[in-house]
């Protein structure tokens, strides 16, 4: 501690070490939060359902998505990425996941929402398996913290059965 620059150096290194420790503690504190998010999705309408010229099935849906993800937010949460996937099984693939809608929730105030949309991304099967197919609607989310580990979870919701014929 014998000179001005020596003291400035010691203060800088010590203060940054403590800051790193505080960030680590903030990340650990996220584990004390036990979230209880809820969500509900209704398929209101099949807008159209057809086979594309290349043979793959495509369907257009009107959806009503409502969710309350406010409990995911803690003081260390920067944003939450959320997406809705249709999940179903075909002879070729044990699990197909087709993203129908996604969004970025920037704050707790925006985490309780209800929206009425047609699917944002095209619902196309890898093949022609969608007629009469049951699928689950699953809401996935990734919580992005300000510091520390990112974590993800999902809610599997009751599914929907597509009609047996194109329309």
């Amino acid at each position: 501690m014998h000179s001005f620059l020596y003291r400035a150096n010691a203060l800088l290194t010590f203060s940054i070490t403590i800051l790193a420790l505080m960030c680590a503690m903030a990340s650990v504190s996220d584990n004390f939060n036990s979230p209880s998010p809820t969500s509900e999705v209704q398929v209101l309408n099949i807008n159209w359902f057809q086979k594309k010229p290349d043979g793959d099935d495509e369907v257009s849906l009107t959806l009503n998505i409502s969710a309350n993800l406010q409990s995911l937010f803690t003081w260390n949460t920067k944003q939450v990425f959320v997406f809705l996937a249709a999940e179903y099984k075909t002879p070729k693939n044990a699990l197909n996941q087709v993203s129908l809608w996604d969004g970025i929730i920037p704050s707790k105030e925006h985490a309780k929402f209800g929206i009425h949309i047609t699917n944002k991304y095209r619902f196309i099967d890898q093949g022609s398996n969608l007629r009469g197919k049951d699928f689950n609607l699953t809401l996935h989310w990734h919580v992005m913290p300000k510091t520390g580990k990112m974590f993800a979870d999902k809610i599997v919701m009751s599914g929907y059965r597509l009609p047996k014929a194109y329309r």
Partner: peptide, 25 residues
Amino acid sequence: EHLMQLMLVCFAVVAFIAGYVLGSF
């Protein structure tokens, strides 16, 4: 040196508690 260490640790503790209680990083 002692003053530097004591002040930084005290401010860190106060800052962490205040941030956690107020829910503001």
